[in-house]
């Protein structure tokens, strides 16, 4: 049933887009230039550096815990009880 939870998700997801209709006079410039991003581009900073391992640990937690969602690995049903 698509009840309050979906309504909440939809509201947060699209509220930023709706705000655009109001317009804005003073633009904000991107404050970290492309040539200043070498630290963030370093492979050790990648949260999804090992995607196959991340998918496994997300599956382990989803099978043992009630919480699900927002892991960033997709997810899906399985009879893993």
């Amino acid at each position: 049933m698509l009840t309050n939870y979906f309504t909440r998700a939809l509201f947060i997801a699209f509220s930023t887009s709706l705000l655009a209709l109001t317009g804005c006079a003073q633009p904000i410039e991107p404050w970290v230039k492309p040539y200043e991003r070498q630290n963030l581009a370093d492979p050790i900073m990648r949260t999804n550096r090992h995607p196959i391992a991340n998918m496994h640990i997300a599956h382990v937690y989803e099978a043992r815990e009630s919480a699900r969602g927002a892991e960033g690995t997709g997810g899906g049903g399985c009879g893993c009880n």
Binding site: Y5, F6, A9, R37, R68, G69
Partner: peptide
Amino acid sequence: TKNLSIALNIESVA
């Protein structure tokens, strides 16, 4: 910043 990035993710499951 040059050294910090953040992320916010939400997900609803029915």
